[in-house]
């Protein structure tokens, strides 16, 4: 069983296909409360309205990029402790360093596997004291 399956997750990506993929993988990992946003600005709006335990975001998006959204989250007293996992095609070392400097919780390069997502989430929740011990895959 996931340690905290009630965590609400926000998936941020301008591509509907990617949102669906990430949502599907999260569901397989036991997260059932998953919302979506198409860009950083929409995500910030949702984050300020509802309580989320995790943000999974793309980098390149119109209106507001993932990295700008991450900086905005870290600069906001109420939001700054939310883990942010970036899932992006921006695979340059400089991108990763920029994301780390902006306060990213972990980083996945597209294309990715469910195992990579599980591994990164385990690391995020381990560091925040909510370790997920099993790959739920729809059941315990």
């Amino acid at each position: 069983m996931p340690v905290d399956p009630t965590i609400r997750v926000l998936v941020v990506d301008d591509m509907a296909t990617m949102r669906r993929i990430v949502k599907n993988v999260l569901k397989q990992l036991g997260f059932n409360r998953v919302d979506e946003a198409e860009n950083g600005a929409e995500a910030l709006q949702k984050l300020r309205q509802e309580s989320y335990g995790l943000v999974v975001s793309d980098w390149n998006m119109p209106v507001m990029t993932g990295i700008d959204m991450l900086r905005a989250i870290r600069a906001d007293e109420k939001l700054k402790s939310i883990p942010v996992l970036m899932v992006t095609a921006e695979a340059q070392q400089s991108n990763l360093i920029e994301a780390i400097q902006a306060g990213v919780s972990n980083y996945i390069v597209k294309p990715f596997t469910a195992e990579t997502m599980q591994d990164k989430l385990n690391k995020i929740f381990k560091s925040s004291g909510r370790e997920r011990t099993t790959f739920a895959h729809g059941q315990a």
């Binding site: 296909t17 397989q28 294309p111």
Partner: peptide, 19 residues
Amino acid sequence: ERRLTDVMTALSFQDLMAQ
């Protein structure tokens, strides 16, 4: 079931292609 999840993640090629 794992393979079906792999099918889903393999489809992320579309996002890379679109970009």
